[in-house]
Nucleic acid binder design. Sequence first.
DNA 1: ATTACATATGTAATATTATAACACTTAGAG
DNA 2: CTCTAAGTGTTATAATATTACATATGTAAT
Lengths: 137, 137
Amino acid sequence: MSSTHTHSKKSQSLTKNQRIVLDLLQNSGEPLKAYFILDSLKKEGLNSPLQVYRALDKLVELGKIHKIESINSFIICNNSNCASNTAFTICERCGKVKEIKNKYLTDGVSDLVKDNQLEITRYNLEFYVLCKSCKIN
Amino acid sequence: MSSTHTHSKKSQSLTKNQRIVLDLLQNSGEPLKAYFILDSLKKEGLNSPLQVYRALDKLVELGKIHKIESINSFIICNNSNCASNTAFTICERCGKVKEIKNKYLTDGVSDLVKDNQLEITRYNLEFYVLCKSCKIN
DNA sequence: ATTACATATGTAATATTATAACACTTAGAG
DNA sequence: CTCTAAGTGTTATAATATTACATATGTAAT
Ligand SMILES: [Zn+2]
Ligand SMILES: [Zn+2]
Ligand SMILES: [Zn+2]
Ligand SMILES: [Zn+2]
Protein backbone atom coordinates (compact mmCIF):
# COMPACT_ATOMS: atom_id res chain seq x y z
CA MET A 1 0.00 0.00 0.00
CA SER A 2 1.14 3.48 -0.79
CA SER A 3 1.37 6.05 1.95
CA THR A 4 -1.54 8.09 0.57
CA HIS A 5 -4.74 6.53 1.85
CA THR A 6 -6.85 7.41 -1.17
CA HIS A 7 -9.73 5.19 -0.14
CA SER A 8 -11.27 8.00 1.93
CA LYS A 9 -13.73 8.80 -0.82
CA LYS A 10 -15.90 11.79 -0.02
CA SER A 11 -18.99 9.86 -1.04
CA GLN A 12 -18.33 7.29 1.65
CA SER A 13 -17.53 9.75 4.37
CA LEU A 14 -20.78 9.32 6.24
CA THR A 15 -20.51 9.26 10.00
CA LYS A 16 -21.63 6.29 12.04
CA ASN A 17 -25.06 7.73 12.83
CA GLN A 18 -25.64 8.86 9.27
CA ARG A 19 -24.59 5.43 8.00
CA ILE A 20 -26.85 3.36 10.21
CA VAL A 21 -29.84 5.59 9.48
CA LEU A 22 -29.15 5.41 5.75
CA ASP A 23 -28.74 1.63 5.89
CA LEU A 24 -32.06 1.23 7.65
CA LEU A 25 -33.87 3.34 5.05
CA GLN A 26 -32.05 1.50 2.26
CA ASN A 27 -33.03 -1.92 3.57
CA SER A 28 -36.59 -0.85 4.21
CA GLY A 29 -37.33 0.90 0.93
CA GLU A 30 -40.46 2.30 2.53
CA PRO A 31 -40.97 5.70 4.11
CA LEU A 32 -40.04 5.57 7.79
CA LYS A 33 -40.82 7.99 10.59
CA ALA A 34 -38.12 9.54 12.73
CA TYR A 35 -39.26 7.94 15.96
CA PHE A 36 -39.61 4.55 14.30
CA ILE A 37 -36.02 4.90 13.14
CA LEU A 38 -35.04 5.82 16.67
CA ASP A 39 -36.73 2.74 18.10
CA SER A 40 -35.23 0.52 15.44
CA LEU A 41 -31.72 1.75 16.08
CA LYS A 42 -31.71 1.76 19.88
CA LYS A 43 -29.58 -1.36 19.77
CA GLU A 44 -27.11 0.39 17.48
CA GLY A 45 -26.61 3.09 20.06
CA LEU A 46 -29.09 5.79 19.05
CA ASN A 47 -30.66 7.21 22.19
CA SER A 48 -32.28 10.53 21.39
CA PRO A 49 -34.51 12.01 18.71
CA LEU A 50 -31.90 14.60 17.94
CA GLN A 51 -29.40 12.00 16.84
CA VAL A 52 -31.92 10.74 14.33
CA TYR A 53 -33.03 14.16 13.11
CA ARG A 54 -29.45 15.30 12.65
CA ALA A 55 -28.59 12.27 10.57
CA LEU A 56 -31.78 12.66 8.54
CA ASP A 57 -31.12 16.35 7.90
CA LYS A 58 -27.67 15.59 6.60
CA LEU A 59 -28.84 12.75 4.38
CA VAL A 60 -31.59 14.93 2.91
CA GLU A 61 -29.01 17.63 2.28
CA LEU A 62 -26.81 15.08 0.48
CA GLY A 63 -29.79 13.97 -1.62
CA LYS A 64 -29.50 10.39 -0.41
CA ILE A 65 -32.96 10.42 1.11
CA HIS A 66 -36.11 12.50 0.73
CA LYS A 67 -38.62 13.76 3.22
CA ILE A 68 -42.26 13.20 2.35
CA GLU A 69 -43.83 16.13 4.08
CA SER A 70 -47.43 15.04 4.12
CA ILE A 71 -46.62 11.96 6.18
CA ASN A 72 -43.61 13.22 8.15
CA SER A 73 -41.56 10.37 6.79
CA PHE A 74 -38.27 9.74 5.09
CA ILE A 75 -37.49 7.46 2.17
CA ILE A 76 -34.34 6.35 0.41
CA CYS A 77 -33.76 8.08 -2.93
CA ASN A 78 -34.64 5.71 -5.69
CA ASN A 79 -32.94 7.62 -8.46
CA SER A 80 -29.32 8.24 -9.17
CA ASN A 81 -29.70 11.96 -9.14
CA CYS A 82 -32.79 13.96 -8.26
CA ALA A 83 -30.92 17.22 -7.92
CA SER A 84 -33.39 17.81 -5.08
CA ASN A 85 -36.32 17.72 -7.47
CA THR A 86 -38.65 15.05 -6.21
CA ALA A 87 -41.85 13.38 -7.32
CA PHE A 88 -43.90 10.78 -5.51
CA THR A 89 -47.09 8.86 -5.76
CA ILE A 90 -48.96 8.40 -2.50
CA CYS A 91 -51.82 5.97 -2.16
CA GLU A 92 -54.81 7.73 -0.69
CA ARG A 93 -56.06 4.57 0.93
CA CYS A 94 -53.04 2.77 2.38
CA GLY A 95 -50.45 5.53 2.29
CA LYS A 96 -47.94 3.57 0.22
CA VAL A 97 -45.34 5.84 -1.35
CA LYS A 98 -43.25 5.41 -4.48
CA GLU A 99 -40.71 7.75 -5.97
CA ILE A 100 -41.57 8.48 -9.58
CA LYS A 101 -38.80 7.61 -12.01
CA ASN A 102 -40.70 8.59 -15.13
CA LYS A 103 -38.30 10.92 -16.90
CA TYR A 104 -40.92 12.07 -19.36
CA LEU A 105 -43.08 13.34 -16.52
CA THR A 106 -40.34 15.10 -14.60
CA ASP A 107 -38.76 16.54 -17.74
CA GLY A 108 -42.21 17.67 -18.79
CA VAL A 109 -42.68 19.52 -15.55
CA SER A 110 -39.25 21.10 -15.90
CA ASP A 111 -40.20 22.25 -19.40
CA LEU A 112 -43.46 23.72 -18.13
CA VAL A 113 -41.54 25.60 -15.51
CA LYS A 114 -39.16 26.99 -18.13
CA ASP A 115 -42.01 27.89 -20.46
CA ASN A 116 -43.61 29.86 -17.66
CA GLN A 117 -40.35 31.56 -16.74
CA LEU A 118 -40.98 30.63 -13.16
CA GLU A 119 -37.36 30.67 -11.96
CA ILE A 120 -37.89 27.68 -9.79
CA THR A 121 -34.95 26.35 -7.83
CA ARG A 122 -36.48 22.95 -7.21
CA TYR A 123 -39.79 21.22 -6.88
CA ASN A 124 -41.64 18.54 -5.01
CA LEU A 125 -44.56 16.84 -6.72
CA GLU A 126 -47.00 14.72 -4.78
CA PHE A 127 -49.46 12.68 -6.82
CA TYR A 128 -52.23 10.94 -4.96
CA VAL A 129 -53.33 7.63 -6.40
CA LEU A 130 -55.10 4.41 -5.56
CA CYS A 131 -52.36 1.78 -5.60
CA LYS A 132 -52.76 -1.59 -7.31
CA SER A 133 -53.54 -3.63 -4.23
CA CYS A 134 -55.97 -1.02 -2.95
CA LYS A 135 -57.71 -0.92 -6.33
CA ILE A 136 -58.39 -4.66 -6.18
CA ASN A 137 -59.88 -4.63 -2.70
CA MET B 1 -91.63 35.12 1.46
CA SER B 2 -92.82 31.61 0.87
CA SER B 3 -93.03 29.14 3.68
CA THR B 4 -90.01 27.19 2.44
CA HIS B 5 -86.97 28.87 3.86
CA THR B 6 -84.79 28.40 0.83
CA HIS B 7 -82.14 30.76 2.02
CA SER B 8 -80.33 27.95 3.81
CA LYS B 9 -77.86 27.65 0.98
CA LYS B 10 -75.52 24.72 1.45
CA SER B 11 -72.56 26.92 0.57
CA GLN B 12 -73.30 29.21 3.50
CA SER B 13 -73.93 26.47 5.96
CA LEU B 14 -70.66 26.80 7.77
CA THR B 15 -70.80 26.50 11.51
CA LYS B 16 -69.63 29.26 13.79
CA ASN B 17 -66.18 27.77 14.35
CA GLN B 18 -65.70 26.99 10.68
CA ARG B 19 -66.79 30.51 9.78
CA ILE B 20 -64.45 32.38 12.11
CA VAL B 21 -61.50 30.23 11.10
CA LEU B 22 -62.28 30.76 7.43
CA ASP B 23 -62.67 34.50 7.93
CA LEU B 24 -59.31 34.74 9.63
CA LEU B 25 -57.60 32.91 6.80
CA GLN B 26 -59.48 35.00 4.26
CA ASN B 27 -58.45 38.26 5.86
CA SER B 28 -54.89 37.16 6.31
CA GLY B 29 -54.24 35.73 2.87
CA GLU B 30 -51.06 34.20 4.24
CA PRO B 31 -50.51 30.66 5.46
CA LEU B 32 -51.33 30.43 9.15
CA LYS B 33 -50.48 27.77 11.69
CA ALA B 34 -53.14 26.00 13.73
CA TYR B 35 -51.92 27.26 17.07
CA PHE B 36 -51.59 30.80 15.74
CA ILE B 37 -55.21 30.57 14.64
CA LEU B 38 -56.11 29.30 18.09
CA ASP B 39 -54.36 32.23 19.78
CA SER B 40 -55.95 34.70 17.38
CA LEU B 41 -59.44 33.41 18.00
CA LYS B 42 -59.34 33.02 21.78
CA LYS B 43 -61.45 36.14 22.03
CA GLU B 44 -64.00 34.63 19.65
CA GLY B 45 -64.43 31.70 21.97
CA LEU B 46 -61.99 29.12 20.64
CA ASN B 47 -60.35 27.40 23.58
CA SER B 48 -58.75 24.18 22.43
CA PRO B 49 -56.62 22.92 19.54
CA LEU B 50 -59.30 20.44 18.59
CA GLN B 51 -61.78 23.16 17.82
CA VAL B 52 -59.30 24.63 15.36
CA TYR B 53 -58.23 21.34 13.81
CA ARG B 54 -61.81 20.25 13.32
CA ALA B 55 -62.72 23.46 11.56
CA LEU B 56 -59.58 23.29 9.43
CA ASP B 57 -60.24 19.68 8.45
CA LYS B 58 -63.72 20.54 7.30
CA LEU B 59 -62.61 23.59 5.35
CA VAL B 60 -59.90 21.57 3.60
CA GLU B 61 -62.50 18.94 2.76
CA LEU B 62 -64.73 21.64 1.28
CA GLY B 63 -61.82 22.96 -0.78
CA LYS B 64 -62.08 26.38 0.80
CA ILE B 65 -58.59 26.24 2.21
CA HIS B 66 -55.46 24.21 1.57
CA LYS B 67 -52.87 22.73 3.85
CA ILE B 68 -49.27 23.37 2.94
CA GLU B 69 -47.67 20.28 4.33
CA SER B 70 -44.07 21.36 4.40
CA ILE B 71 -44.82 24.23 6.76
CA ASN B 72 -47.78 22.78 8.69
CA SER B 73 -49.86 25.76 7.67
CA PHE B 74 -53.19 26.53 6.11
CA ILE B 75 -54.03 29.09 3.45
CA ILE B 76 -57.21 30.35 1.88
CA CYS B 77 -57.88 28.96 -1.60
CA ASN B 78 -57.07 31.57 -4.13
CA ASN B 79 -58.85 29.93 -7.02
CA SER B 80 -62.49 29.37 -7.67
CA ASN B 81 -62.13 25.67 -7.94
CA CYS B 82 -58.99 23.62 -7.41
CA ALA B 83 -60.83 20.32 -7.34
CA SER B 84 -58.30 19.47 -4.64
CA ASN B 85 -55.44 19.79 -7.10
CA THR B 86 -53.06 22.33 -5.65
CA ALA B 87 -49.89 24.10 -6.69
CA PHE B 88 -47.80 26.51 -4.68
CA THR B 89 -44.61 28.45 -4.83
CA ILE B 90 -42.66 28.58 -1.59
CA CYS B 91 -39.78 31.00 -1.10
CA GLU B 92 -36.75 29.11 0.10
CA ARG B 93 -35.44 32.10 1.99
CA CYS B 94 -38.43 33.74 3.69
CA GLY B 95 -41.04 30.99 3.43
CA LYS B 96 -43.60 33.14 1.61
CA VAL B 97 -46.24 31.04 -0.10
CA LYS B 98 -48.41 31.75 -3.11
CA GLU B 99 -50.98 29.58 -4.77
CA ILE B 100 -50.23 29.20 -8.45
CA LYS B 101 -53.06 30.29 -10.71
CA ASN B 102 -51.21 29.62 -13.95
CA LYS B 103 -53.66 27.49 -15.90
CA TYR B 104 -51.09 26.57 -18.52
CA LEU B 105 -48.87 25.04 -15.86
CA THR B 106 -51.56 23.10 -14.05
CA ASP B 107 -53.19 21.95 -17.27
CA GLY B 108 -49.77 20.94 -18.53
CA VAL B 109 -49.25 18.80 -15.49
CA SER B 110 -52.67 17.25 -15.91
CA ASP B 111 -51.81 16.45 -19.53
CA LEU B 112 -48.53 14.87 -18.50
CA VAL B 113 -50.39 12.75 -16.02
CA LYS B 114 -52.83 11.61 -18.70
CA ASP B 115 -50.02 10.91 -21.17
CA ASN B 116 -48.39 8.70 -18.60
CA GLN B 117 -51.61 6.92 -17.75
CA LEU B 118 -50.90 7.51 -14.11
CA GLU B 119 -54.50 7.34 -12.86
CA ILE B 120 -53.95 10.12 -10.41
CA THR B 121 -56.84 11.23 -8.26
CA ARG B 122 -55.28 14.56 -7.35
CA TYR B 123 -51.95 16.25 -6.96
CA ASN B 124 -50.06 18.74 -4.87
CA LEU B 125 -47.18 20.61 -6.49
CA GLU B 126 -44.69 22.53 -4.41
CA PHE B 127 -42.29 24.75 -6.32
CA TYR B 128 -39.45 26.30 -4.39
CA VAL B 129 -38.39 29.76 -5.52
CA LEU B 130 -36.60 32.88 -4.45
CA CYS B 131 -39.32 35.49 -4.15
CA LYS B 132 -38.98 39.01 -5.51
CA SER B 133 -38.12 40.75 -2.29
CA CYS B 134 -35.66 38.02 -1.33
CA LYS B 135 -34.01 38.25 -4.74
CA ILE B 136 -33.33 41.95 -4.25
CA ASN B 137 -31.75 41.59 -0.82
C1' DA C 1 2.79 16.80 17.27
C1' DT C 2 0.19 21.13 17.96
C1' DT C 3 -3.10 24.17 16.77
C1' DA C 4 -7.26 25.74 14.74
C1' DC C 5 -11.56 25.04 12.67
C1' DA C 6 -15.63 22.93 11.18
C1' DT C 7 -18.56 19.23 11.89
C1' DA C 8 -20.61 15.73 14.63
C1' DT C 9 -22.03 13.73 19.13
C1' DG C 10 -24.53 12.92 23.61
C1' DT C 11 -27.88 14.35 26.71
C1' DA C 12 -31.63 16.74 28.95
C1' DA C 13 -35.18 19.76 28.57
C1' DT C 14 -38.69 21.84 26.00
C1' DA C 15 -41.48 23.41 22.05
C1' DT C 16 -44.68 22.43 18.40
C1' DT C 17 -48.13 19.89 16.03
C1' DA C 18 -51.97 16.72 16.25
C1' DT C 19 -55.29 13.20 18.04
C1' DA C 20 -58.13 10.14 21.40
C1' DA C 21 -61.91 9.74 24.37
C1' DC C 22 -66.26 11.07 26.07
C1' DA C 23 -70.29 13.60 27.30
C1' DC C 24 -73.20 16.92 25.39
C1' DT C 25 -75.64 20.05 21.83
C1' DT C 26 -77.53 21.52 17.51
C1' DA C 27 -79.54 21.41 12.86
C1' DG C 28 -82.15 19.27 9.50
C1' DA C 29 -85.00 15.36 7.43
C1' DG C 30 -89.05 12.86 7.66
C1' DC D 1 -91.73 15.46 17.50
C1' DT D 2 -88.18 11.98 16.83
C1' DC D 3 -84.27 10.43 14.91
C1' DT D 4 -79.79 10.98 13.12
C1' DA D 5 -75.64 13.04 11.49
C1' DA D 6 -72.64 16.48 12.42
C1' DG D 7 -70.60 19.62 15.40
C1' DT D 8 -69.07 21.22 20.16
C1' DG D 9 -66.44 21.64 24.57
C1' DT D 10 -63.10 19.79 27.49
C1' DT D 11 -59.31 17.16 29.34
C1' DA D 12 -55.62 14.49 28.60
C1' DT D 13 -52.12 12.62 25.80
C1' DA D 14 -49.54 11.31 21.60
C1' DA D 15 -46.44 12.39 17.92
C1' DT D 16 -43.14 15.33 15.81
C1' DA D 17 -39.25 18.46 16.17
C1' DT D 18 -35.94 21.90 18.18
C1' DT D 19 -32.94 24.57 21.73
C1' DA D 20 -29.08 24.70 24.51
C1' DC D 21 -24.77 23.31 25.99
C1' DA D 22 -20.81 20.57 26.94
C1' DT D 23 -17.85 17.27 24.66
C1' DA D 24 -15.65 14.74 20.91
C1' DT D 25 -13.87 13.94 16.27
C1' DG D 26 -11.90 14.69 11.57
C1' DT D 27 -9.07 17.51 8.62
C1' DA D 28 -5.69 20.57 7.27
C1' DA D 29 -2.15 23.96 8.15
C1' DT D 30 1.82 25.12 10.98
ZN1 LIG E 1 -34.76 10.82 -5.39
ZN1 LIG F 1 -52.89 1.54 -1.43
ZN1 LIG G 1 -56.96 26.48 -4.34
ZN1 LIG H 1 -38.70 35.33 0.03
